[in-house]
Amino acid sequence: MYPYSNGFSLSQLYQSPSTHTINPYLSMDAVQKMFYMHLALTKNEAVTMIQKNYQADVDIFDEIEAEALAMSDMIAGAIVMQFCYLF
């Protein structure tokens, strides 16, 4: 199984080359990169936990938090652009 297949599937859901996209203001490449980064950071955090490297775990968690906030900003911004007449 491809290690990032979940990230690939989610990025296709948000933006696909077809006309049926969730949001036309999200590029598939940007969304895919965002999800791959999230999965890589989460994997690294799990490894540091297993290795009982708690300081590295905390540092990676801080990166995950910042990255999750960036993800939410990207998605929220695209929603506002898609439905600007509602804001």
Rank of each mutant, 00 (worst) to 15 (best):
M1H: 14
M1D: 15
M1A: 15
P3D: 11
P3G: 08
Y4C: 12
Y4F: 07
G7K: 04
G7S: 02
L10H: 07
L10W: 02
L10Y: 01
Q12G: 04
L13P: 05
L13I: 09
L13K: 08
Y14L: 05
Y14T: 04
T19D: 13
T19M: 11
T19P: 00
H20F: 14
T21H: 01
T21S: 10
I22R: 04
N23V: 09
N23M: 03
P24G: 10
Y25W: 04
Y25R: 03
L26H: 08
L26R: 05
A30N: 05
V31R: 00
Q32N: 09
K33T: 12
M34P: 00
M34V: 00
F35Q: 02
F35H: 02
F35Y: 00
Y36H: 06
Y36S: 01
M37I: 09
H38Y: 02
H38M: 06
A40S: 12
L41P: 00
T42K: 10
K43A: 12
N44T: 09
N44L: 09
E45K: 09
E45D: 15
A46H: 06
A46E: 13
V47P: 08
V47N: 14
T48C: 06
T48W: 02
T48S: 03
T48L: 06
I50Q: 14
I50K: 14
Q51C: 11
Q51L: 15
Q51M: 15
K52F: 08
N53Q: 14
N53P: 08
Q55G: 02
D57M: 14
D57P: 00
D59I: 06
I60L: 05
I60A: 03
F61V: 03
D62K: 15
D62A: 15
D62V: 08
E63G: 01
E63H: 04
E63F: 07
E65P: 05
A66I: 02
A68I: 06
A68D: 10
A68Q: 01
A68R: 08
A68L: 09
L69K: 05
L69I: 08
L69D: 09
L69P: 00
M71Y: 00
S72R: 09
D73F: 07
D73G: 04
M74A: 01
M74I: 08
M74P: 06
M74K: 05
I75V: 03
A76G: 12
A76D: 11
I79T: 14
V80F: 02
V80D: 10
V80A: 07
C84I: 13
Y85Q: 07
L86P: 03
L86V: 10
L86G: 11
L86D: 11
L86W: 07
